[in-house]
């Protein structure tokens, strides 16, 4: 379908250009949106090109944190010296996503707002509640290797595909949003929704809401982080399960731990139960197992993805073991 194409010179005019339309999309790297235009998954009346917005800088904040502009390319963010030095979990997550050619186009905001790669969502010939509310979910009872084991509903079992967002969830990132009503800040862990009975809504954003930047708070000295991704191919594949882990151990005791999981839910899954179990406990394998078992007690695997439960358990234990070894 044809669309009206508009270039926005600044964030305010981008939001203004997007306001009042039912079918509107912001165009940044295009690596997911243009594919969806071709597949017929979306047919906006208006496309607002935001690639010219002055949001392509990474800025060090006075408190020691980092502000990442929404149109910073994934490749540039992964290569940024401060990200490589202070936030290895984020650099590793970015580098494990997509391919070099795609990372040179894809942006921070676009990566967060990319949509599920559920094969049924992408196939117009099959029912899908996310694509066409009320038509049913073809994945339930179908091919579910890449689907959710946590937080799914009877209406949708899709997973969020981003690696970057999982790292940002573990880093307590804050998302700056400009909307028709002004600016607001959304914690990254609250940006994406669980499917519930409205799986067509991936996030809490309105169509004219524009992500302008993502802030990363500083990590206390001595904190270590890593990203572990398990997938069907060694490269250029989405996660079956991924783990973003942030850990600070003092005198053998867990002082701070943050765990986010990818490939297992409709959103980057912050493993709060596991974190609660682990805080102030000895940093050993027994505690790591107890922690992730507490989280996975709530898992509800589907017929084709029960393997994700032990896979998640082992990936988390191995990630925490590696981080705690670095801190002895």
């Amino acid at each position: 379908m044809p669309f009206d194409y508009r270039r926005a010179p600044d964030p305010e005019s981008a939001v203004a250009a997007a306001t009042g339309w039912a079918g509107v999309a912001f165009l940044a790297g295009g690596t997911n949106l243009v594919d969806h235009l071709k597949l017929g998954l979306t047919s906006p009346e208006v496309l607002v090109d935001i690639t010219g917005l002055p949001l392509d800088e990474v800025e060090e904040l006075p408190d020691g944190g980092l502000r990442i502009g929404a149109t910073v390319r994934n490749a540039d963010l992964a290569a940024h010296p401060v990200v490589r030095r202070d936030y290895p979990v984020l650099a590793r997550a970015l580098l494990s996503g997509a391919s070099g050619q795609i990372r040179n186009l894809a942006t921070t905001g676009g990566n967060l707002l990319q949509r599920t790669r559920c094969v049924y969502f992408q196939d117009l010939t099959t029912p899908c509640n996310k694509r066409e509310p009320g038509t049913g979910c073809s994945a339930i009872g179908g091919y579910t290797r890449h689907h959710a084991i946590l937080g799914a509903s009877a209406h949708c079992v899709a997973t969020h595909p981003s690696d970057m967002a999982v790292a940002m969830a573990a880093l307590d990132a804050q998302v700056a949003v400009l909307g028709t009503g002004g600016r607001r800040v959304v914690p990254l862990v609250e940006l994406h929704r669980l499917p519930g009975d409205e799986p067509h809504r991936d996030t809490v954003l309105a169509p004219s809401d524009l992500i302008t930047s993502v802030d990363l708070p500083p990590l206390p000295p001595g904190t270590r982080s890593l990203y572990r991704k398990v997938r069907d191919r060694a490269s250029f594949a989405f996660a079956l399960v991924s783990v973003a882990a942030v850990l600070r151990v003092e005198d053998g005791v867990v002082e701070d731990v943050r765990i986010a999981l990818g490939g297992v839910a409709h959103k980057p899954w912050r493993a709060r139960r596991a974190e609660d179990v682990l805080r102030r406990e000895p940093a050993d394998e027994e505690a790591f197992r107890r922690a992730i078992d507490a989280e996975l007690a709530g898992a509800a695997p589907l017929e084709g993805n029960g393997f994700k439960v032990p896979l998640t358990r082992n990936a988390v234990v191995s990630a925490l073991r590696e981080l705690s070894r670095e801190q002895r």
Binding site: G30, V34, K38, L47, A75, Q101
Partner: peptide, 27 residues
């Protein structure tokens, strides 16, 4: 593939390698 999966359409765009099948020319 025309869907960003094969890399056959790769060029150097402003000096960087990118796929061109998922980029809109007008942008």
């Amino acid at each position: 593939c025309d869907h960003g999966q094969c890399g056959a359409c790769t060029v150097l765009l402003d000096g960087r390698r990118v796929i061109t099948c998922l980029a809109l020319a007008v942008a």
